[in-house]
Structure formats: C-alpha cells, structure tokens
Design a protein around this nucleic acid. Structure first.
Lengths: 118, 118
DNA sequence: CTGAGACATTGACATCCGTCGATGAAGGAG
DNA sequence: CTCCTTCATCGACGGATGTCAATGTCTCAG
C-alpha cells in the first residue's frame, strides 16, 4: 500500500494546499520552493515543451528550441528536477528529460480552497 | 456578458495551462510572474493565512502574525496584489486584504495536462 | 489646525538568481 | 587508445530580490 516513496523527498511531493488550516513554516518553505522553480519564463517554457512532447526529450532538442546557451538550459533543468517537476534519464551520451505528471497532478490540488474541516 | 474585466490585466487572470499546445513567450512570462509571486515562503504564509480567515484581514493583524517589519509585509502584499492573487480594500485608516478566490480557482486549471486537441 | 496612528514608499544594503564562457566528465566511433 | 560529441559543473558578472530604518501620506480625534 506504499506508493511513490521515491519522490517523497522532492518539494513537489508534499503539496500542502494553500488553503490548509495549518501550515508550518517548513510547509511554506517547501511550497515556495516549487513555485520558485516555476517562477522563471524559460523554465515555464521548458515544462510546456515537455508537456506537449510525446515522450522524453534530450537536452540538445531543448537547447535548439530556445535562445539560451547549453549550460543555462542545464541550469534550469537541474532546478526543475530538484523541485520534483521533471525526471532525468540517461540514454548513452544523451540526457532525456520528461515531465513528472504525478507531481503535476498533485500540484493541481494545491490551489483547492476547500477548508480541511479539521 | 462582459465578466471581470477589472482583473484581466493582472497575471493571475490569464492562466495559460502548462500543457497548452501553444504558449507564447508572453504567456510564459505572465505565468512565471504568478509563480514568482508565490515563490517566497512569507508570501505563501500570507496567502495561507488569508485563505483561512473568514473575511478580509488588516495589515496590523498580518504583521503581528509573522516576524517581519511592517514595511516588509507591505512589500509582500503589494507583490501579491500585483499578481492578482490578493485584493485590497481601504476601511478608514486600515487596509484590509483578502484572497482573490476567482483567481485561485483559475490558477488551479494551470496544471491540467489534457492536450488542447488543436 | 494639530497630533497620533496605520500603512505605503524610499534609500540602502546583503544576498540570491540567471546568464555566459571555459572547463570537466562520460560515452561512442574509429 | 584517441578524438569527438553530449551534457554538467565552475567561476565570474550584472541585475533582481528581500529586508529594514527612516520618511511620507492619509485618516480620524480632539
């Protein structure tokens, strides 16, 4: 009955709702961490690009899509992975990134304003 | 049949889904603006506090709740209002802030990953 | 009109963040 | 083994951000 223990350490794993009756400072910190990851237009575009891809995309294709240097793209990808929004997969020389749809699904619940009814 | 024209200028008004098939650079910029507003733990706590309040809350009460100077709290409130997440209301000497629940509701749709099917 | 209280704005400062060029690590072709 | 390709990391830099003390603005009481 244990599910997805592997992602429970990343910020996007917890997702305390903004309307939760009790939110610790750590919860706020973690929540802010996820939003911070999405608080950059280039990272939003990366997520959007991956969301529309049929499968994992390699860094070279991502770099070609936007006007940023390769190190900068890697920098953003690292941020998104750290936040738990993306997943990395090594295939030979190439690094493929894909969206963590489970995390995104959980994130959607963060805006639910229904009170927790104790 | 015109609805909520007054908030259409704030970032939280548009909410292009992260999975949208086409996302312009401006869309990405606007989306990032909203997330940036929530990318600070203190602002997350403010939103959380207002989400649990039965009604608008004055700055003095917000300031009392967290260990920040009054100017700093005002600074964060301004950010949240600019992002379209909060609303400000002047009552005599006091400034009352409340959550823009319409905006939050729209924001929840930003994580929907259903492809737009053209 | 004068004074006090609530909040916003300003100026200053330390820190963080996004960016790039240069470099390093690892895999594959020959 | 050698070289090339792909990607990550490092060092450095400019700009943005969060914070506070001081000051400004507005409202109300007297």
């Amino acid at each position: 009955m244990i599910k997805e223990l592997d992602v429970l350490e990343s910020p996007a794993a917890c997702c305390t709702p903004l309307g939760a009756t009790s939110m610790s400072e750590d919860d706020a910190e973690t929540t802010a961490e996820v939003f911070k990851a999405l608080g950059d237009p280039n990272r939003v575009r990366i997520v959007n690009q991956l969301a529309n891809a049929p499968g994992p995309v390699c860094v070279c294709d991502l770099t070609a899509g936007m006007e940023l240097s390769q190190p900068t793209v890697s920098f953003h990808l690292k941020k998104l992975v750290s936040a738990g929004l993306l997943e990395r997969e090594q295939r030979g020389v190439w690094a493929f990134y894909s969206i963590n749809r489970e995390a995104l699904k959980r994130l959607a619940t963060i805006f639910t304003m229904e009170e927790a009814t104790v």
